[in-house]
Nucleic acid binder design. Structure first.
Lengths: 319, 319
DNA sequence: CCAGTTATAGTCCACTTGATTATAAGATGT
DNA sequence: ACATCTTATAATCAAGTGGACTATAACTGG
């Protein structure tokens, strides 16, 4: 163990280093009710399963488990994060979880009825700012976060906690930042304001806590997915993975708003989308929208290859 | 296997699902010679080792291996990517690699002489555009990429290959995008223009290929790290992890330039850094720079907590 | 004291983007 | 038929961002 070891040679391969690898999927879609994700066990868990020898790759293993458990075939997939589960350490065994974000359309359904879609904001009611700041932030979270901050032993910690709470939840006149979804969940976890923090804990006071909870750290993974997606739609054209083949610009805007949890200025959104040439008119129109019939657009696929990183800006920069 | 399975319960834990997990580190620093990274085996491999039961977490396991193999203690760490190694599938065993990016200073040395720093651009000579586009791009890569593109069977593939080459390597008047480091390496791999692509291959023609190669897919992981870092310095204040406690603005600029592989307009860089209040003057000056003594700055640490996502823009946006 | 080097301040301008207003085209109800 | 509602689409204004450039200051070494 004292000599530098090159990977792939001279390594001790034995039982002691064995781990089990779990694949976990956050499968996101957007429907009229808003952004949602695939769940199993009545909304308590994300689709997941062990990585097995039969799987050709991590991604194909993930696709297999999701399709088996929910009947949903997956399109776009990206890796979220890999973590070792501290709570599930066996004698000679550990579990590593590799989480993924998948984007799809709800219509991409098999006929299987096993899948069930759940709304993001049932699990994160403080994340939806489309109708202004939700009351839960100031009425419930703020006082309890302050209480938590003031419960710290030393003044420095109290100050730090209040500052972190203010940054994450846009208190004291700060601007709301929708990309901080993960930080907010972690803060609430640290303050024991979510159910997950109380499991097996000593806390006798099980006061009502905001948002639906999930098993293990699945809600944390969901928060990671939300934060990643909210960030990514600003610089990569991933929104279109969630859209039907034909759509109006307002439908596209509503989808982005659903994901980011905030409203967008309509003319600016149209201008940005059109001048980037991300979409092209089909000529067809739809009258299903109520007022004047809207142009139907489709995603301009060739652009996807032309702009590997740049482009796809969305007017979500400032508050 | 037909019923939905909840994670953590009812799972079959058996030999067939066992994997070995490898931790691989790209440890980056910047010195006068430019950006560099820690290697073992005379620059042929990245520090790495298996994730073991004794490790408290993935990160601590990584730190342990890097320190053991190179004597270098690590500061900032972030996860890069997790992949299953297709080439190393045993009868009942597979290997999963979890790669990390670490930022440090070369001075953070132990006295151990086992570590050896290698320069990025010895492995990716086409990535350094600080003195203009390196000749290797037009003189070597371009003709061989065109040759590769024209070797495709059908016209559509030929067109696609030429377009991808042009986008990645800024041909046909396109602008250079330093963040495409990974795409460039993958393109060269696909075109069999890097050594790694020829291992165990049929290719009899071992023409000289650009850049030093590494074992397994370590150079690919390095490319991933470079791309990630070049992207990240634009929106998070991670550059300061690579700086000494006190530095001049020009030193900071040179570091950013070394990482991004391109030059930055000096007044604009200063303006952006100063108006973001990322640094503060110490009052001290240094005359080591040659001309007029420069102010010494230090990183304004409190800002790091205040701006969890925003800020830290760098003038690298356009060409 | 002059040339060379680096530091630092300021200006100009093109482009981006947030905000607002105006107009067009359909549906619906009376 | 007409008013009114809803949504679509176009155009404009103003503030801010960021790239390029110039000018001046302060030091070192012949």
């Amino acid at each position: 163990m004292d000599q530098p070891k090159g990977p792939g040679k001279g390594r001790t391969i034995g039982k002691t280093n064995n781990v089990n690898a779990d694949l976990i999927a956050v499968v996101v879609a957007v429907n009229d009710a808003g952004p949602c994700f695939l769940t199993i066990e009545q909304g308590a868990a994300l689709p997941s399963g062990p990585f097995e020898l039969a799987h050709r790759s991590l991604q194909s293993g993930l696709r297999a488990w999701v399709e088996l458990q929910t009947g949903q075939p997956l399109g776009y997939i990206e890796q979220l994060y890999t973590f070792a589960d501290r709570d599930r350490v066996g004698a000679n065994q550990r579990v590593i979880s590799i989480s993924y974000l998948a984007l799809t359309r709800e219509e991409d359904a098999g006929t299987s009825g096993r899948r069930s879609w759940a709304s993001w904001y049932d699990y994160f009611p403080w994340e939806d700012h489309r109708s202004g700041r939700p009351p839960i932030v100031l009425e419930e979270l703020r006082p309890r976060l302050i209480e938590w901050a003031d419960g710290a032993d030393d003044g420095a910690t109290r100050f730090d906690r209040r500052r972190r709470a203010a940054v994450a939840f846009a208190l004291d006149g700060r601007a709301w930042n929708e990309e901080l979804a993960l930080q907010r969940y972690e803060l609430l976890y640290e303050a024991a304001l979510v159910d997950e923090a109380k499991r097996g804990g000593v806390s006798a006071i099980l006061a009502s806590v905001p948002g639906r909870s999930m098993i293990a750290d699945h809600r944390r993974i969901l928060a990671t997915a939300i934060a990643r997606l909210r960030s990514k739609i600003k610089y990569r054209p991933v929104v279109f993975e969630l859209m039907p083949p034909l759509f109006t610009l307002l439908q596209l805007q509503r989808t982005v708003e659903a994901l980011s949890g905030r409203l967008i200025n309509k003319p600016n959104f149209r201008r940005l989308i059109e001048q980037q040439e991300l979409v092209e008119k089909t000529g067809a129109t739809t009258a299903e929208t109520g007022g004047r019939p809207a142009q139907l657009y489709r995603f301009h696929h060739t652009i996807l290859d032309e702009r590997p990183v740049a482009g796809t800006k969305l007017p979500l920069a400032r508050a």
